[in-house]
Every structure is written in structure tokens, then in C-alpha cells.
Amino acid sequence: MDVVIQIIASGLTLGAMYAVSTVGLSLVYGSLNMLNMAHGALLALGGYICFYTMTALGLPAVVGVLAAVVVCGLVGLLIYVCTAAPLLGSPQFETGVFIATIGFGAVVENVILRMFGPQPQPQSLQVPGDIVIGNVHIPNQNLLILAVALGLMVAMALLLKRSRLGRAIRATAQNREAAQLMGVRVGQIYAIVLALSGGLAAISGIMVSSLYSLLPNMGGDPMLKAFIICIVAGLGNVTGAVISAIALGLLEATAQYNLGVQYSFALLLFLVIVVLIWRPYGLFGRKQVVRL
């Protein structure tokens, strides 16, 4: 029983972290058909901004988190201005923006490297203590990650479902031209979506670095997993991304316990292959018919 509790606790924590990161990616892909390869760099930037605000400036954790969200949101906006906006309308948009965001991400990572060095740093935002269920100690840090992720998912769901902005984001994702004909300024929506995604990446980066450590390239692994989750869920499907993230987090924790850490990532990749063969448009994606 203790083992099950341990696996569920670890799996939910992993899943919650993946969900926050995946929702940002999925939102961007759903709206712009854009694979944002700078997302991992934004995760790292968010972690470092929080660390710097708390350690170097001596400010409280809340300010650190807010600073990370604001800075990464603004960098998300910059990604729109520098990479997506100039390529919008180009027939090679998807390829062009994929390459451009790789370049943008490399610049951000190298700026972090110059400023903070290559050595790992511990994230300052840590919640001490744990709770005990049976014989299992669950760190409060993990519970905080779960609570924050849950809060963010609810907030995102409310934003997308209930607000005027959310309706405009969904409308633009579902039919860009029809959204324009309703008076939606799609460029503005794209910019907002990238800023939102940047803010979510910052929180995800703080979560990841609070469990592991800060490194300039720390965003690579979570971004790769977020892409895997996006593909399993169906690119652009936000709800599917959250469900898949939690499921894959639990699967990864189970695989780590039963097979060993070295097999968990291989298992995720195997799962992607199976899903792509079975449902090429993802578990929650919709079949698309392209007229040639």
C-alpha cells in the first residue's frame, strides 16, 4: 500500500509539473500552429529570475514568482514580435518559426549561462517539512506544486471557457479567418497567447528547479516531455494535454519504481510511437481532412 501511495504522490507531482508546461505549449500550437522551441529556455529563465529575486535582491518568494511570470511573459511577447509576427502569412510559417524559436531559445540560454554560470544552483523557493500518509513521507514542496498546478489549470479553464478573451483565443484557434470576420485582432491574440505561455513556463521552471536544481539548459528535458505529452494528447488540445500530463506522470513514476529510472523515458517514447500508429492525431485530437 505504501508503495502505491508513493507512486501516486510522485506521479501526480510529475504530472502536475508537466501539465503546467504542456498547457503553454499546447495553447501556442492550438492558436498559431507554432511549435515554440524556446519554451524550454523560458522554463530556465523563470527558475533563474525567481532565484535571483529571492537570493540577490532578498525579496520574498511571492515577489520572486511574480517577477519570473512577468519577465517570462514579456519574453514570450518578444518571441511573438521577433519570430512569429514576421513569418505570419508565409507558406513556410511552421518550419520557419520552428527554426527561429530554436535560435531564440539558444540566445536566452546563453544569456543565462553568461549571467549565472554553468554550475547547478539550488532553487531558493523551498517549502520545508512533509506530511506522513501511512509510512510514506510526502514533502510539502510536492503538495505545493500540486496545489499550484491545480489552481493554474482551473484558472486557465475559466479564462478559456468563461472570459471574452478566452473565447477569442478559442475562436482564433478554431478558425482564424472567421475570428477576423468577428472583429478579433488575431495578431493581438497571438501575442497574448505567447505571453501567457511564457508566464506558465516561468511557473513550470520554478517547480522543476525546486525539485531538481537550476541549470541554464534545465528546460530541455521538461520541454521534450511536454512535446511528447502534446503529441499523445493531440497537438493543440489543452484539456487533453492536462489529462495526458497527469497520466504520463503516473506512468513515469510507476515505470521508475518497477523498471528503473533509465527505462522511464524510453517507455514514454515507446508510448508515443504506439499512439502515433494507433491514432496519428493523438488521443484527444480530431482527424483533419486536408483538401489538396
Partner: peptide, 23 residues
Amino acid sequence: VPQGDLLFPEMTVLENLQMGAYL
């Protein structure tokens, strides 16, 4: 009112109508 449907397929009828009054 564009040719064909050009609706927002995953939104409800009400949400589609609300999008008409977006401004």
C-alpha cells in the same frame, strides 16, 4: 457571413453567437 460554414466548430451555438458580438 462567409461562404460555407466557417463556424467555430468546437463552440456551442450560443458561444458562436456571442462571438458575433465580440466587439
